[in-house]
Design a protein around this nucleic acid. Sequence first.
DNA 1: TATTGTTATACTCTATAACTATA
DNA 2: TATAGTTATAGAGTATAACAATA
Lengths: 152, 152
Amino acid sequence: MGTTGAITDASLRAFVGYDMKRAFNALQADLSRTLTPFGLRMMTFSALSLVVENPGLRPSQLATVLTIERANLVVIVDELEQRGLLTRTPSTTDRRAHALHVTDQGQSLFAKANRAVAEHDARMIAGVAQHLQPQLKDALRQIENSAKQDVV
Amino acid sequence: MGTTGAITDASLRAFVGYDMKRAFNALQADLSRTLTPFGLRMMTFSALSLVVENPGLRPSQLATVLTIERANLVVIVDELEQRGLLTRTPSTTDRRAHALHVTDQGQSLFAKANRAVAEHDARMIAGVAQHLQPQLKDALRQIENSAKQDVV
DNA sequence: TATTGTTATACTCTATAACTATA
DNA sequence: TATAGTTATAGAGTATAACAATA
């Protein structure tokens, strides 16, 4: 077919998950282009941001906040450490744990990248009516909670 | 530290992209659990849905609607065909092209899976005020468009 | 026993390049 | 020359299992 009628995704459009998938994929691909000049990816930028905001953070805490597994965080911290953007130092109180701190270089790169990401994010949400923007964020957080508490 | 104060992701929370990532990941993980009993994944379910809704669809059209590359669609159609859920027949008008049709088995499985996905989606969006639900979908589509048209 | 960091492994989704056969 | 389907390959994010060191 394709000759007779127009193609439709009306059935899938009934699902908010489908709209979320499309929106997130497009946003994520575009965000990657924004972060590439800084040598960062979505997850390395996010991790860097959290260490800037929470100096001394432990990797396990970072993984929890990012809602990813500890195992997946290791390579992210490895990469940031190897690039000299943050340091991994032994904890003074718990010899199992590490403390994460940004370096001056990491702070500087983050400041620039954060500006670019803020501008990018503003462009992404610009088409949404201003009074709906906080409601959009609330709705997304509500959906996250619904998904996590869904047992069925 | 982590000993003194609570951990915060306030900076990242300023970005709608961060909320979208968290919400979508949680929803997607939960949707996977919903689809596993049917032997389907998000993309195989989506492809099946579109072939049900658009019989005779060509793979290239399917890839366009799903906003993925043709190359990535091949394995999805392979899987659905090998499981006997859809057929790939040569087009009568264009010997390069194929026409996709669901089998009876595919139709039957889709009906059940679609019901489960509909229920899942309803649970996901249940916490969002009803009058905000269409506005949420509009906002997500707007963000998708903004991301695709973003050139900077 | 439980937790922290770690390694290894695999799965899903995605993107790009290049090929073939047709148009 | 352009398009449809395909193959191959790689990158990014995620999940699980298992381990050593430490609590």
